[in-house]
Design a binder for these strands. Structure first.
Lengths: 265, 265
DNA sequence: TCTTATTTGTTCGTATGTATT
DNA sequence: GAATACATACGAACAAATAAG
């Protein structure tokens, strides 16, 4: 087959493969032909094919299984409704444990959460400043790995002041229906205002492994802070999510004046 | 110099260059040594250096000027406060023309906006559905290119129902103090609720040229919709922003119930 | 304007390494 | 251990953009 001259060959090959995947010519989950086969098919070297595949990896279109082949990604993007996901109604619906379960069930995906870490630790510097803690204070750390139909989609690390977590009884594995926020609400410490700072960056080595990402693939890093009515921050959380798997949705009213302490820096 | 074996060479070189840039060993705006020089310095081939530089391009650390060299990026990330930016106080402060001017002045950057297109056109399908228009209705299209201290940072394309735009008198170039929203408010059609859908994707060819991006660099695509109190959508807008240049900030209250028509799909 | 040197972009053939089956 | 498949690396060559003369 003949490739035009206007674009570089590896980009043309990437375009053709992308189009074929979108036409479902290669079914989701199935393997592409090997790089050698594609090289023969398109009349270019295998290095050129490899470079085209790197582009598709960066876009999250394919997932490379070294030694086996290159698979077409299966999961459609998940829509995260940052506002609704903290509404009590969303969290407690159908016995869902927290917002994540609710979001995925709504899409027909199988949610799974693995608690990677839970315990009492000294507060990291960033969390300490936001939560207004002393250097000697400790926090409850809760690290969770989350999956959508067995595909890793979210890493969440949250920090609560230890004293508060003990009072609310959320230092144990099972936080009950509605999750941590519902327990906090029960002791009169339910958060009423939230802020999120969202940026995009390259994954760390650990994140690359966990999500099976190429180094050209990027992730959202979301710093989420929960506030009490008086402006006190009670939760500092960092979410990491592969960009290709998520669409973020926000809604708000005009003249939405600031009530929390931390708004500018 | 000797490179270790654990990581690939191009990634090690990328790490070293990244560290040097963060130490300001190469000043912002200045050129890196040429790829041939770097190849000699690190004892690897020029192809390997090129691949390392591609990684840094993808992260937005450098900007390649073909035929001249590779420059270190100068602009710090801009923080976009999606909530405050539509508050009247933010828009009209110090004679700023709209939210963008305000945001950049606050950071000490020089804002510049170029109107790329302004006119009456048939409504594109996506805008038509959101705005609830008939196939024969027209819209005001307003395409703007925005710069921060001469670096392109934002492409905004907004659509308003033509009838509404005429009434508000925003069909001309200069929309006056406070921008379009202030004119709309004056005729009792000021938006009171907003929604944004944010995703990350690879840039189109046109966006690549405009922002001087590598194909491995990604952009935010934000679909912004403005609503009247009765839930009518009066603006459909698409913003495109390079991910490395922006941090998105959102704030909202719990139990922030939906008032707009379009929330789920 | 034309020419030439410099710099990055792309591609190939070839080779070797690493992971999986 | 052997075969298969992707990952990395080099040297060489040519293309394309830019700058200087």
């Amino acid at each position: 087959m003949a490739l035009e001259a206007a674009k570089s060959q590896y980009r043309q090959v990437a375009d053709l493969l992308r189009a074929a995947i979108e036409r479902e010519e290669y079914a989701p989950g199935s393997l592409l032909p090997s790089e050698s086969e594609l090289a023969a098919e398109y009349g270019v070297s295998r290095v050129t094919i490899n470079r085209a595949v790197q582009l598709l990896r960066g876009e999250g279109m394919v997932r490379v299984l070294r030694g086996r082949g290159t698979a077409v990604r299966a999961i459609p993007p998940i829509r995260r409704n940052s506002n609704l996901r903290y509404a009590r109604s969303s969290r407690e619906e159908e016995g869902s444990r927290g917002a994540f379960d609710f979001e995925l069930k709504r899409l027909g995906l199988k949610p799974a959460t693995k608690l990677a870490q839970l315990g009492q630790v000294p507060a990291p510097e960033t969390a300490r400043q936001v939560l207004g803690l002393e250097a000697t204070d400790t926090v409850l750390i809760r690290k969770r790995e989350m999956y959508a139909s067995d595909e890793p989609v979210l890493l969440a690390t949250s920090y609560f002041p230890w004293i508060l977590a003990e009072q609310a009884g959320v230092t144990e594995t099972d936080t009950g229906p509605g999750g941590t926020y519902s327990r906090l609400a029960e002791i009169g410490k339910g958060p009423v205002r939230f802020s999120e700072d969202l940026r995009v960056r390259t994954p760390t080595a650990a994140e690359e492994r966990f999500f099976a990402l190429a180094e050209t693939q990027q992730v959202y890093e979301i710093v989420h802070i929960s506030y009490l009515p008086d402006g006190t921050a009670i939760e500092y959380r960092e979410d990491v999510l592969p960009t290709h798997q998520w669409v973020m949705h926000f809604e708000w009213n005009a003249e939405n004046d600031t009530k929390s302490g931390e708004t500018e820096r």
